[in-house]
Design a binder for these strands. Structure first.
Length: 871
RNA sequence: GCGGAAGUGGCGGAACGGCAGACGCGCUAGCCUCAGGAGCUAGUUGGAGCAAUCCAGUCGGGGUUCAAAUCCCCGCUUCCGCACCA
C-alpha cells in the first residue's frame, strides 16, 4: 500500500497549484460567475484556528462552485491599518509598516499551508498607497456631494500622556497606558453623512433574504427609526409673545416625543446637561457659579458612569418654567443627567405617569404625576377607583387624580383628562394631535434616527491621511484628484504624545493651497479604518486599477458578492458601512445596485476550554501545530465536520484525530481499488446485481445530499457525514468482492470477474474523491492522480445526480397505530396507497394492536407511511 | 428592561409535521497482532426481559393534528445583541 503522508501531499499540491496559477481568474461574461469572499484579516501576526475556520468555510464553497462550472472569484487581503501596530510602535519602536508587512507575510504563509484556494494575484493591503489612494478618492467624492463635512465633536483625551485616545484605549474611564482618568475634549472632526441614507438602509434590509435574521434585526435596531413629533415648549416669562408659539428665537425649547398622546400628562420638561439652553439659564440665574458647577458635575460624570452601568437618575431645577403648548400651563424646567444630548433635540417633555424613567425622576424630586392614558385592559378597574374620589396626595401635586400608581404604564389606551382628546385612542389620536400641532404652528411630525453620522477622524498615524488642506485665504479644500495619493510620511519615532502624530511632521503639514498657491496646512488626522473595509470587496474585482477604485465593468461582472462569511462581531458597523459606501458609489456612478452581499454567513467562534481563544488567556490552538501532526486536510475536515458553520464549537484534539482516521480510511480503500478501477472510463452500464445496485443507489443518494448540503444549506457537517456513510458502504461492498477488504493484502489469484463490479466501484470512488476534495483537497488530488485521471481536480466536474439510480427498489414503510410505529413493511417501491393499506392491516404486529378495536381511519402519508386510527 | 437565538444520549451533533438519536468522539466486547493509543467486526437513550418484544423518552406544562424535537400558547434555563433613544 502507498504510504499516506499528508504533510508531503500538502507541499506537493500547494506547489502545483501555485505554479499553475490554479485559482487565478479573469472576468468572462460567457460563463456564470461566483464571488466567494471571507472577511479580510487584520494582520495581527498569527491566525488561530478560530480565524482559520472562516477561511475554510469559504474555501469549501469556492472549490465546490469551481467544480460546478462557475467562474469563481475567491480573493484575500489585509485590513492592514490600525491601532495595534501603532501601539506596538510606541512600545517597541518597530515601525508599523515593518511589523504589518512582516505579519502579513507570516499569516499568508499560514493560509497557504492550509491550501486555501485564493487568487493571490489579487491580494490587497489597505496600508499601501495604491489602495488608500482610493479611500481618499472616495472621500473627495463625498466631499463634493456634501456627504463629508466637518463639525466639532468630543474625543477622549489623556491629560497625562497629552494625547487623544481611541475608545478601545480607554479602559474603564482611564488611559490604557498610564491609568489617568480620561477627559473629553472638543475637536473639529470629519463626518460621513450616513444618515442621508438611513431610510434606504433600513428599507432595503427587507431585501436581504439570505442574511441571518439576527443580523438584519441588529441593523434595524441600530438604525433605530422612530416616528413622533417635534413640539415647541416656549420658555415662560422670557417673552410674552412666545406663549402663543411665535416665540422669539432661542426662547423656545424643542422636544421630540413618540407619545404626543400623553402630552396632557407632561408635567415638567427635562434638558440634557449639554443642551444649549442650559448655559443661557445658568447665565441668567441668580447664582451662575453654583448653577454651572452642578451642570459641570453632570457633564463630567456622565461618560465614566455610563460604562459601569446604570447611573442614578439625578437632576436639578433651573428655576425656569416652560409652557405646555397643549394645556397652556407652566411646567418646571429641570436639567437631568439621563437625558441624551445627541438624540432628538436634547430635551424631552416628561410624562411621569406613562414613562418609567420620568416616573422615577418625579418620585425622587416630588414632581407632579398626572394620569392621562387608561390602558384598555385596566380601564374599568381604574375608573372605578377614581370614582371614589380619593384625595390627591401632596407629592403628586395639582391635577393628579386620586389613583395610587407604583410604576408608569406606557401601554397605549384611551385618553383621559386630555381636554377635547379625552376618550379617544391611540394610534388615531396621535395623528390628530400632530395635525393640530402643525395647524397651530407649535410642532410637526418628525422621524428620528438612532443612527448618527459617522465620525471618521482619528488622531492617529497608521491610517489613511484625510486629503484636505486648509488655506487662510481659500478655506477648507479637497486635495485635487491628480495629487492623490496624499502619502503617509515616514515617521522615525513614536512617542505617543501630542494630538495627531502627523501634526509633528512639518514637511507633511506645510503645503501649498491648490487654489491660490499660497502657504496652506494639511489635515493631520487619518481616517477610521472602517473606511478601508467599506469597499475592499469592490477593489478585488479590479485590484490593479490606478485611475479608479475599480473598473465599473469589472464590478458589474463580479459583483455582488454571492457568498460572504465572517464573524458576527461585524454584524452592524462593517456591514452597514459597506452598504452605505455601495450606495454612495452607486450615486457616483460606479455601480448600479445597492446591496453588496447577497448571502451572508456569520460563522461561530472556536472555543478552547470554554473560552474564546486569545493570546492573553494562553488557550490558542495554532493551526501550524495541527498541520505538522495531521496535515491540512484533517484539520480542514474536522473543523467543518464538528458543527454547522454558524455554531460556536469547542476545540477537540480527539475529534481532529477522528477526521485524520477517516481520511486514512478513504486513502486505504481508494489505494486498494486503484489498480482495478483506475484508468478505465465510460458511463456505468450493465446488468447489476443486488449489491451493485445498492452501492449505486448510495453513490447517487450521497451526490444529492452532499450537493444540497454544500451548495444550498451550507450544512457542511452533514455533507461530511454523508460522505462518511458512502465510505462505510464502499467498505462493506468491498468485503463482498474477490478483492476483499483493504486491510487484507490482495491475493495474487484475486480477480474481479464481473465487469459491472468494476464499473460500480469506479463510479463510487470517483464521486467520493471529487466530493471530498473541497474538504481535503491535497489528499483528493493525490488519489485522483492515483486513479489515473489527468488534469487535476480543481476544475474537474462535480458528479451528476441520477434520480433513477438513486430510487429505491424496495422501501420500508412504517405503520403507525394510534400514532405509534408498530410494524415496518418491506415492500416493492411503487405500490398504490390501497395496496399499502391492505398489507398494513394484514400485518400480524398491526393486528395485535388493532385486535378488538374498530378501525376508524387508515391513511397513507408521504414517506410513505401508513397511519391507522383504531379505538 | 427591550430584542434575537437556542434547549435532543456520556460528548459534538442528525432529523425541509411522518421510523428520534444519522455521522463522529468516547466507551464495551470480539477478531487480528510480538505489541498497540493502529486496523477490522459488533454493540452503545433509560427501564423490564434469555429473547421476540414492551414501557418511557427531545427543558417543564397545556394545545392543534391521524401524526409534534419540529407548529401555537404559558413558564423555566442558557447564550448573544442593544441598553436611560423619550
Amino acid at each position: 500500500m502507498a504510504d499516506y503522508k499528508p504533510q508531503q501531499l500538502d507541499r506537493k499540491w500547494q506547489k502545483h497549484w501555485r505554479s499553475t496559477n490554479a485559482f487565478e481568474v479573469e472576468a468572462d461574461p460567457s460563463r456564470p460567475k461566483f464571488y466567494c469572499l471571507e472577511m479580510f484579516a487584520y494582520p495581527s501576526g498569527h491566525a488561530h484556528v478560530g480565524h482559520v475556520r472562516n477561511y475554510i468555510i469559504g474555501d469549501i464553497c469556492a472549490r465546490m462552485k469551481r467544480m460546478r462550472g462557475y467562474n469563481v472569484l475567491h480573493p484575500f487581503g489585509w485590513d492592514a491599518f490600525g491601532l495595534p501596530a501603532e501601539n506596538a510602535a510606541i512600545k517597541t519602536g518597530t515601525h508599523p509598516e515593518t511589523s504589518t508587512l512582516d505579519n502579513i507575510a507570516h499569516m499568508k504563509g499560514q493560509l497557504q499551508r492550509l491550501g486555501i484556494s485564493y487568487a493571490w494575484g489579487r491580494e490587497i493591503a489597505t496600508c499601501l498607497p495604491e489602495y488608500y489612494k482610493f479611500n481618499q478618492w472616495i472621500f473627495l467624492k463625498m466631499l463634493e456631494r456634501g456627504l463629508a463635512y466637518r463639525r466639532r465633536s468630543s474625543v477622549n483625551w489623556c491629560p497625562s500622556c497629552q494625547t487623544v485616545l481611541a475608545n478601545e484605549q480607554v479602559v474603564e474611564g482611564a488611559c490604557w497606558r498610564c491609568g489617568s482618568p480620561v477627559v473629553m475634549r472638543d475637536l473639529e472632526q470629519w463626518f460621513f453623512r450616513i444618515t442621508a441614507y438611513a431610510e434606504e438602509l433600513l428599507k432595503d434590509l427587507d431585501t436581504l433574504a439570505a442574511w441571518p435574521e439576527k443580523v438584519v434585526v441588529m441593523q434595524r435596531n441600530w438604525i433605530g427609526r422612530s416616528e413622533g413629533a417635534r413640539l415647541t415648549f416656549p420658555v415662560a416669562g422670557a417673552s410674552e409673545t412666545s406663549v402663543r408659539g411665535a416665540g422669539a428665537p432661542g426662547l423656545d425649547i424643542a422636544i421630540f416625543t413618540t407619545r404626543i398622546d400623553t402630552i396632557y400628562g407632561a408635567t415638567f420638561v427635562l434638558l440634557a446637561p449639554e443642551h444649549a439652553m442650559v448655559d443661557r439659564f445658568a447665565a441668567e440665574s441668580p447664582d451662575p457659579v453654583a448653577f454651572r458647577a452642578r451642570v459641570q458635575q453632570f457633564r463630567a460624570l456622565d461618560r465614566g458612569a455610563r460604562l459601569t452601568g446604570a447611573i442614578e437618575k439625578e437632576g436639578f431645577d433651573t428655576g425656569r418654567k416652560a409652557v405646555n403648548p397643549f394645556t397652556g400651563k407652566e411646567v418646571p424646567i429641570w436639567v437631568a443627567n439621563f437625558v441624551l444630548a445627541e438624540y432628538g433635540t436634547g430635551a424631552i417633555m416628561a410624562v411621569p405617569a406613562h414613562d418609567q424613567r420620568d416616573y422615577e425622576f418625579a418620585r425622587k424630586y416630588g414632581l407632579p404625576i398626572k394620569i392621562v392614558v387608561v390602558p384598555r385592559s385596566a380601564a374599568s378597574a381604574i375608573e372605578a377607583e377614581r370614582g371614589v374620589g380619593v384625595p390627591a396626595k401632596p407629592d403628586r401635586g395639582e391635577g393628579a387624580p386620586g389613583v395610587e400608581i407604583s410604576e408608569a404604564t406606557s401601554d397605549y389606551g384611551r385618553l383621559v383628562d386630555s381636554a377635547e382628546y379625552s376618550g379617544q385612542e391611540a394610534p388615531g389620536v396621535i395623528t390628530r394631535m400632530i395635525a393640530d400641532a402643525e395647524k397651530r404652528g407649535i410642532g410637526t411630525g418628525e422621524v428620528q434616527w438612532r443612527l448618527k453620522d459617522w465620525g471618521i477622524s482619528r488622531q492617529r498615524y497608521w491610517g489613511t491621511p484625510i486629503p484636505v488642506v486648509y488655506c487662510d485665504k481659500d478655506g477648507v479644500q479637497g486635495v485635487p484628484y491628480d495629487q492623490l495619493p496624499v502619502e503617509l510620511p515616514k515617521i522615525a519615532t513614536f512617542s505617543g504624545r501630542g494630538d495627531s502624530p502627523l501634526a509633528q511632521v512639518p514637511e507633511f503639514v506645510n503645503t501649498q493651497c491648490p487654489t491660490c498657491g499660497g502657504p496652506a496646512r494639511r489635515e493631520t488626522d487619518t481616517m477610521d479604518t472602517f473606511v478601508d473595509s467599506s469597499w475592499y470587496f469592490l477593489r478585488f474585482t479590479d485590484p490593479g486599477n490606478s485611475v479608479l477604485p475599480f473598473d465599473p465593468k469589472a464590478a458589474a461582472y463580479w459583483m455582488p458578492v454571492d457568498f460572504y462569511s465572517g464573524g458576527v462581531e461585524h454584524a452592524i458597523l462593517h456591514l452597514l458601512y459597506s452598504r452605505f459606501f455601495t450606495r454612495v458609489l452607486r450615486d457616483v456612478g460606479l455601480v448600479t445596485w445597492a446591496e453588496p452581499f447577497t448571502r451572508l454567513l456569520t460563522q461561530g467562534m472556536v472555543l478552547k476550554n470554554g473560552d474564546v481563544m486569545s493570546k492573553s488567556k494562553g488557550n490558542v490552538v495554532d493551526p501550524d501545530d495541527m498541520l505538522q501532526k495531521y496535515g491540512a486536510d484533517a484539520l480542514r475536515l474536522y473543523v467543518m465536520f464538528v458543527a454547522p458553520p454558524e455554531k460556536e464549537v469547542e476545540w477537540s484534539d480527539a475529534g481532529l484525530e477522528g477526521s485524520f482516521r477517516f481520511l486514512f480510511r478513504v486513502w486505504r480503500i481508494v489505494d486498494h481499488w486503484a489498480a482495478a478501477v483506475g484508468g478505465s472510463s465510460g458511463p456505468a452500464s450493465g446488468t447489476f446485481n443486488d449489491g451493485e445496485r445498492a452501492l449505486r443507489r448510495k453513490t447517487h443518494d450521497t451526490i444529492r445530499r452532499a450537493t444540497v448540503d454544500i451548495e444550498e444549506r451550507m450544512h457542511l457537517n452533514t455533507a461530511v457525514s454523508s460522505l462518511m456513510e458512502l465510505v462505510n458502504q464502499i467498505y462493506a461492498f468491498s468485503e463482498t468482492t474477490p478483492l476483499g477488504p483493504p486491510t487484507r493484502a490482495v491475493q495474487p489469484s484475486a480477480r474481479i470477474e464481473r465487469p459491472e463490479t468494476v464499473v460500480v466501484m469506479r463510479e463510487a470512488i470517483d464521486a467520493l474523491v471529487v466530493m471530498i476534495s473541497p474538504f481535503a483537497p491535497h489528499t483528493a488530488e493525490e488519489l485522483w492522480e492515483m486513479l489515473g485521471h489527468k488534469g487535476g481536480l480543481t476544475r474537474a466536474a462535480w458528479p451528476a445526480f441520477d434520480a433513477e439510480v438513486a430510487k429505491a427498489e424496495e422501501v420500508v414503510v412504517p405503520v403507525q397505530v394510534n400514532g405509534k410505529v408498530r410494524a415496518r413493511l418491506t415492500v416493492p417501491a411503487g405500490l398504490s396507497d390501497d395496496q399499502l393499506c391492505e398489507r398494513a392491516l394484514a400485518d400480524p404486529a398491526v393486528q395485535v394492536h388493532t385486535a378488538g378495536k374498530t378501525i376508524r381511519k387508515v391513511l397513507v402519508a408521504k414517506g410513505p407511511l401508513v397511519s391507522i386510527v383504531a379505538g
